Simulated assay, not measured.
Amino acid sequence: VPLSLDIRGWEEMHPLNSVGWSLFFEYVANILYAIGIRKFSNKTLGVFVFIAAVALTHFAVTNSNGDVSGGWTLNLAQVRVGITRTIFPFFAGLLLSRLAKPTRIKNAFLWCSLMVAIVLYMPRIGGADNVWLNGIYESFSIIIIFPLIVYLGASGVVQTSAGKKVCKFLGDISYPLYLVHYPIIYFYVAWISNNKGTTIVQAWPYALSILIGSIVLAYFSLKWYDEPVRKWLRQKWS
Rank of each mutant, 00 (worst) to 15 (best):
V1I: 11
L3N: 11
L3I: 12
S4E: 15
D6G: 01
H14D: 10
H14Y: 14
P15E: 04
P15R: 01
P15Y: 03
L16V: 03
L16H: 12
S18P: 09
S18I: 12
S18Q: 12
S18V: 11
W21V: 01
S22E: 05
L23D: 08
L23S: 10
L32S: 01
A34Q: 06
A34K: 09
I35V: 13
I35C: 06
G36Q: 09
R38W: 13
K39T: 06
T44Y: 08
G46Y: 04
V47R: 14
F50V: 08
A53Y: 10
A55R: 04
H58D: 11
T62F: 09
N65T: 12
G66L: 00
G66K: 00
G70I: 03
W72A: 01
L74V: 02
A77T: 07
V79S: 09
R80Y: 13
V81I: 13
V81D: 01
G82T: 00
T84H: 02
T84K: 02
I87P: 04
F88P: 00
F88D: 01
F90M: 06
F90K: 05
F91G: 05
A92L: 04
L94C: 09
L96C: 06
R98C: 05
A100N: 10
A100K: 02
I105N: 07
N107G: 02
F109L: 12
F109V: 06
F109D: 05
L110G: 05
W111M: 08
C112G: 13
L114I: 13
Y121C: 14
Y121A: 12
M122I: 10
I125R: 07
I125Q: 07
D129G: 10
N130T: 11
V131L: 12
L133V: 08
N134S: 07
Y137T: 00
E138C: 06
S139W: 04
F140M: 05
F140Y: 11
I143Q: 02
I144V: 15
A154F: 04
V157G: 04
V158D: 00
Q159E: 14
A162G: 12
A162P: 01
K165D: 02
V166Y: 10
F169A: 09
L170N: 06
I173D: 03
S174E: 07
L177K: 05
L179G: 07
L179T: 05
P183M: 08
I184A: 07
I185F: 15
F187Q: 10
F187G: 05
Y188C: 02
A190S: 09
I192A: 08
S193H: 12
N195H: 15
N195G: 01
N195Q: 04
G197I: 05
Q202C: 06
A203E: 06
P205H: 08
P205G: 03
A207C: 03
L208A: 09
S209A: 14
I212R: 00
G213R: 01
S214Q: 03
I215E: 06
I215S: 05
I215W: 01
V216R: 07
V216I: 13
V216Q: 04
L217V: 14
L217K: 06
A218M: 03
Y219K: 11
F220L: 14
S221N: 12
K223W: 09
D226W: 14
D226F: 14
R234K: 15
Q235N: 14
S238G: 14
S238A: 14
